[in-house]
Design a protein around this nucleic acid. Structure first.
Lengths: 190, 190
DNA sequence: ATGATTTCTTGATATTTGTCAAGAGCAAAA
DNA sequence: TTTTGCTCTTGACAAATATCAAGAAATCAT
C-alpha cells in the first residue's frame, strides 16, 4: 500500500476499496530528480502532486532574494493551489531537493474524481481544512514568537529535516537569515 | 438583497434562485453589540457567521500578551474552522469591535446544505481556497517584508479600517507593537 | 459636563535581527 | 583525487524593532 493510499484511508476511515482504487488510479507515479523543477513560476500549474518519497521546495525567487514558502515532505501534497484551481499563472516555483517520487494527477483527471467517487468532496474539504490550519498556525507563530522560538518549535517537530534540507531553506521558511539561524543553533547546542 | 446573497452569487455566477433561497434561509440574522463575544476560546465553536455589517476581531489572549489573528469585515466569514469542523475546543476568541450584524448558521444546518443544494460542495471548496490564498499571502508577507512594508501594503488595501479598528489591533494583526506602528505612521505622514 | 480609563504617541534605551565579509567545511564536477 | 563552487559559521557593525515610561488625546461611564 502506498503513502497515497494510506493518506486517503486516514481521512475516510474505513474506505470502500473500489473508491480507493478509483482515486488512486488517476494518480500517476512520477519520479523527479534532485534539482528538477516540478513547476516554474509564471507557468500554469495544471497538476497536483502527492509526495510518496523525497522533498519538494516551494519558493519565490527575485533579483534580491529568494523566499522559501513551504517544503513538502512525504505524505504532503504540492501545488500552486490558486493556479491549479483558477488557471492563473503560478506564483511559486517548485523544485525537488532530493530525488523524489510523486503521485501526480492532472487537473482534468482531478475533476473526474468527484463524478466517480461520491464522497470525494468530503476528502477534498478535509484536505483544505488541514492546510488551512497549518497556515493559521504559521501566521500565529510570526505574530507571537521570536525567530528563536520559531526555530525551537520547528526543530522539536521536524528534527529529521535538519539532515535532509539545506539549512538556509529552513531559515527562510522560518523567516530569518541563515546567519541568525546559525546563531540560534549555536545557542541551543551549548 | 443581502451581502450574503451577493457573496454566494459572486461564486456561483448565475445561481438558481431556489438554491440561493435555500442556502440563505438556513442563516439567521444575528445582531451582536460592540464588545460582545461571539466565541470564547476553550468553548466549542458550533456555528459559522457571515458579517453583514460591522467588525469582528479574532484573537488569543494570554497573561502576557494578546495577539490579534484576524479581523472580519463586511463580506467575510468568521469561525474557528478547526473547532467547527472537528468539534474541538476553540483556540480563538471572537469579539465584536462595533455593533455588528451577522448571518449565522449552526453546524447542524450547515451539514444540511449539501443535501439540499447539489453544488454546495463547490461553493464550499472555493470559499476554503479563497481563505487559503489569503493566508498564504500573509505568511509570505512575514517571510519577505519588514514591518513597515507590511504596514504600507495593508494601509493601501484597507484604508477604511484605520478609522474603524483600534490601531493597536491592526498593529498586532501585522505583527508589530503599537509603538512601532505609530512610528511607521509618523514616517508615512511626513 | 466631569472624572476615569484607555488609546496613541513619543523619547530613551535595550534587544533582536539583518547586512557585510571572510574563513572553514562540505558537496559536486572533472 | 583535485579543483571548484556552494553552504554554513562567525565576527563586526548597522538597522529594525521591542521594552519601558510618560504625557497627550480620545473614549467611556456617570
Amino acid at each position: 500500500m502506498t503513502e497515497l493510499e494510506q493518506y486517503i484511508k486516514s481521512y475516510f476511515g474505513v474506505v470502500a476499496i473500489d473508491d480507493l482504487k478509483t482515486i488512486v488510479s488517476l494518480f500517476k507515479l512520477t519520479p523527479i530528480k534532485k534539482g528538477e523543477f516540478l513547476l516554474k513560476s509564471g507557468k500554469r500549474c495544471d497538476k497536483l502532486s502527492f509526495v510518496q518519497s523525497g522533498l519538494l521546495r516551494m519558493f519565490i525567487s527575485t533579483d534580491e532574494k529568494e523566499i522559501t514558502q513551504w517544503i513538502s515532505t512525504k505524505g504532503y501534497f504540492s501545488t500552486d493551489l490558486s493556479s491549479f484551481v483558477f488557471e492563473t499563472p503560478s506564483r511559486w516555483t517548485i523544485q525537488a531537493l532530493v530525488d523524489t517520487e510523486l503521485y501526480t494527477i492532472t487537473k482534468d483527471d482531478y475533476k473526474k474524481i468527484g463524478d466517480l467517487v461520491p464522497k470525494w468532496s468530503e476528502l477534498e474539504k478535509l484536505f483544505l481544512i488541514r492546510c488551512f490550519i497549518i497556515l493559521e498556525d504559521r501566521i500565529f507563530s510570526h505574530l507571537s514568537m521570536t525567530a528563536e522560538e520559531r526555530y525551537n518549535f520547528f526543530f522539536k517537530n521536524n528534527r529529521e529535516l535538519f539532515n535532509q534540507v539545506p539549512l538556509q531553506f529552513i531559515a527562510s521558511l522560518l523567516g530569518m537569515t541563515p546567519e541568525t539561524f546559525s546563531r540560534i543553533r549555536k545557542k541551543q547546542l551549548s
